[in-house]
């Protein structure tokens, strides 16, 4: 394990030293991280980084297999266009997490901001998954083209809603699972509730269990039957919008 203290270091220097460090050790610890961007960008498999503090925007951008564990909250655009890898956030997470993410997993202990999972994709064996303990802001899963978003809605107060407005707007692939569901008026017109299948339930069980393990929680009260699943009505939503001129 190599420890790098990030205090007062510019992101470029920090990311450079991470690149150097991974040549000798696959286990890195970053301390005093305070807003440095792009940590873990493009990093490959078998690299594990523990991040203490608050990593900046675009953490794990284009990441390709590495594992990040963040002891703190993540800022915006976590896992932007990530290909593979795993991110565990012991805290909350800002907007657009998982933008165009193609593969890998994100576990967020708390809640996430706006437009999370926007334009998430999937391709062959790559199927991205975002698991969020709390709630999400508006436009969750906008333009979603693949993968899965799971919201557990843990510890929400009575007036708190699990999603904001316009959830799944423009969705044309993938699935969103919301514990207890969301109000129909929050849902974009391109998506609808569909039945949970047995394989959905297996999938949910697996990820709820993983969440419980990552954050050391007892989730025996979370019953997979209480999830509601939302999927695209059509994978070609705008097909009939045009006439050829």
């Amino acid at each position: 394990m190599i420890t790098i203290n990030a205090k007062n270091i510019h992101y470029r220097a920090l990311n450079d030293s991470i690149d150097k460090a991974v040549r000798t050790s696959k286990n890195i610890k970053l301390t005093d991280v305070c807003g440095q961007r792009y940590i873990g960008r493009g990093l490959d498999e078998n690299i594990k980084i523990k991040i203490y503090g608050t990593p900046g925007n675009d953490t794990a951008a284009y990441m390709d297999g590495a594992e990040l564990e963040i002891f703190g909250s993540a800022q915006d655009a976590l896992a932007n266009t990530m290909n593979r890898g795993k991110i565990i956030v012991h805290g909350h997470c800002g907007d657009t997490a998982g933008y165009a993410m193609r593969g890998g997993e994100i576990y967020v202990e708390g809640s996430v901001g706006y437009r999370v999972g926007i334009h998430m994709k999937e391709y062959r064996d790559l199927k991205p998954v975002i698991v969020v303990g709390g709630a999400a802001g508006d436009f969750l899963g906008e333009y979603m083209a693949g993968g899965a978003i799971i919201l557990l809605g843990l510890g929400l107060s009575k007036n708190e809603r699990i999603t904001g407005r316009f959830c799944a707007t423009g969705m044309h692939g993938g699935a969103i699972y919301l514990y207890g569901g969301t109000d129909a008026f929050n849902l974009g017109k391109e998506a609808a509730e569909v039945k949970l299948t047995n394989s959905d339930k297996e999938f949910l069980k697996k990820h709820v269990k993983a969440y419980a393990k990552h954050f050391n929680k007892n989730l025996s009260a979370v019953k997979v039957n209480n999830f509601k699943k939302y999927a695209a009505l059509n994978k070609n939503p705008y097909e009939n919008m045009y006439c050829k001129n």
Partner: peptide, 12 residues
């Protein structure tokens, strides 16, 4: 494009 076959490719 690294997207599923037959799926619309939408650029926001």
């Amino acid at each position: 494009r690294m997207i599923p076959e037959g799926s619309d490719a939408i650029s926001p």
